[in-house]
């Protein structure tokens, strides 16, 4: 199993930390992992993205241009990465702020109302975990148990009290992912 993922959105949406939790959880399941962020000028002015690879075998290139899954959280990232999804791959996006819907017909497209659900839950910070939940529903590459362990490892201890809320947000995401285009 090798899963190549791009997560892209605005700085502050928790793009990099979502990737970090996914990668740490992968380690908990004895997978090989890599996490390569955009660290360029763009992260200072708006968009942020991270490439995460989970694999059962040694990972070659940590830098990719084609992905099994793209998790897209704003219009700029949709414009940039829609074309980078491998044919038959998955595009998961949050419709908040999206004015040009994804147009490809050769990939599976799913929607998660992460921004709305996070706002409704009263805890907007769990936005990225809702999106992560939606992803895990579509690609159950990591077990929830490993995510919990990954959260424990990647969060400083003072934040451990927020773990149950994060796990709940993942469940919300799993339950609310909508299918837009099935091949």
């Amino acid at each position: 199993m090798t899963e190549e993922i791009i997560i892209a959105g605005f700085g502050g949406q928790g793009v990099l930390s979502m990737g970090k939790i996914l990668a740490y959880s992968g380690i908990m399941q004895n997978k090989e992992v890599s996490w390569f962020p955009s660290y360029g000028p763009e992260m200072r002015g708006g968009t942020a993205n991270v490439t995460v690879i989970l694999s059962d075998t040694r990972i070659s290139s940590p830098v990719l241009h084609h992905y099994d899954t793209a998790i897209i959280l704003n219009q700029q990232s949709l414009d940039k990465f829609e074309k980078s999804v491998k044919p038959g791959g998955i595009l998961l996006y949050d419709p908040n702020g999206i004015v040009h819907e994804p147009a490809r017909k050769d990939i599976k497209i799913y929607k998660i109302e992460g921004t709305r659900l996070a706002a409704e839950s009263g805890n907007p910070k769990t936005f990225n975990m809702i999106v992560l939940g939606a992803y895990l529903k579509l690609k159950p590459v990591i077990e929830l148990d490993s995510i919990e362990k990954g959260l424990k490892k990647s969060l400083p201890e003072r934040h451990h009290k927020s773990i149950p809320g994060n796990i709940e947000a993942i469940r919300v995401g799993q339950e609310n992912v909508e299918s837009i285009l099935v091949l």
Partner: peptide, 10 residues
């Protein structure tokens, strides 16, 4: 280089 410096791995 910037790739190896910035990336996270096990």
């Amino acid at each position: 280089d910037g790739v190896i410096g910035q990336m996270m791995e096990k």
